[in-house]
Design a protein around this nucleic acid. Structure first.
Lengths: 193, 193
DNA sequence: CCAAGTCCATACGTTACCGTATTGATGAAC
DNA sequence: GTTCATCAATACGGTAACGTATGGACTTGG
């Protein structure tokens, strides 16, 4: 067996970091814990990364490129805005990638952004994209510009609520609840035409 | 000046803890930091509390009794469910008590509940009360039982989204957004009658 | 085959905490 | 005014981290 197969890549660390983030929040992604989890010493970590915040940046990078953009791309082929938005809702509720629970991670990213200005800027940018997409779809459906924005943000806030609540109060975060909110918004747009 | 006026009470520590929680999350409420903030040594802390988790319990107690129950009581005198729910929405968006920003603290409590099973149980109980109240008011307005629950939870999730988002992406958490969600729910109920 | 590069282990110094133990100060009660 | 209870300061030992420094070990190119 070649040595290469056992050596860790930067991305291995990043994925472990994301898993730890999803599991226990940003405070729980600690280099010595990750090292233990990866059965390796932290000497390895400081080979791949400058320091802990370097890992944080990499986590934000991977999140933005591999996870976030993907979601929107996945539904682009559907025919109507309504179908795309519903599919997006389903996707948001169920996603999981590379062993990282996306919903848990989403909540953890928000919580992280509250505490860390660097993360905040990145998360804000990602959310701006998402809201922008929702607004454009709602506009396609005939919503007025200002109302499309209110509705898009409202739905997204509910989704964030789902993400954070899932972990400690799942009765509150049932899928049906979020779907009802989505319906509320979609119906509001269609009724107005 | 009597000595009493300078000595700290248990509640002084608890309020400081809540302020720290609102500011930097549960991981940032540390006894030596609070001591510094209160211009006192941690010898004082361990006089008033058994240990750090004892402070945590006290924080949850104060939150439940002095903060949460208050909100609902404040609107009880209003005439109609619709008026009460709207007033509640306003209150939730603006509250601040004893130098603690309630909205920030709310978000921090949710984030805390994600990480700590003890906090989770308490927060769940509080949220059950809140949802119960919302459901009963929506039912009074004529909503069907199952839909009242969906709507109540949906609105509450959006509020949680507001609380966590306020800190890092205020453009997302505008009051108008949440009010729009509330209107969506109220209109849905009234349209069905 | 050896020299350079790549990747990791180990040991170290440092910081920030937790919780305990002991002592000190101050007001109140007698 | 002595004594007691209340509250706080200080000093201590212990743990979990961070980041550095240094020394392997394995791999690949010349």
């Amino acid at each position: 067996m070649s040595r290469k197969s056992q050596e860790l890549t930067r991305d291995d660390w990043v994925l472990a970091g994301l898993a730890a983030l999803a599991e226990g929040g940003i405070e729980s992604v600690r280099v010595e814990r990750l090292a233990k989890r990866l059965n390796v010493s932290k000497g390895s970590f400081y080979w791949h990364f400058l320091d802990r915040s370097d890992l944080f940046s990499a986590m934000l990078d991977l999140w933005e490129t591999d996870f976030t953009a993907q979601l929107i791309a996945n539904v682009a082929s559907l025919p109507t805005p309504r179908a795309r938005l519903r599919a997006l809702a389903d996707e948001a509720l169920e996603a999981s990638m590379d062993g990282v629970d996306v919903a848990h991670a989403e909540g953890a990213f928000s919580a992280w952004a509250v505490l860390d200005p660097v993360a905040a800027a990145r998360v804000r940018a990602i959310e701006a994209q998402r809201i922008g997409y929702l607004v454009s779809e709602l506009s396609l459906m005939g919503a007025e510009a200002t109302d499309a924005e209110l509705l898009a943000k409202g739905v997204y806030l509910a989704l964030l609520g789902v993400f954070t609540t899932r972990r400690y109060n799942p009765a509150l975060a049932e899928d049906a609840v979020f779907r009802r909110v989505v319906d509320l918004a979609l119906d509001a747009v269609e009724r107005r035409r």
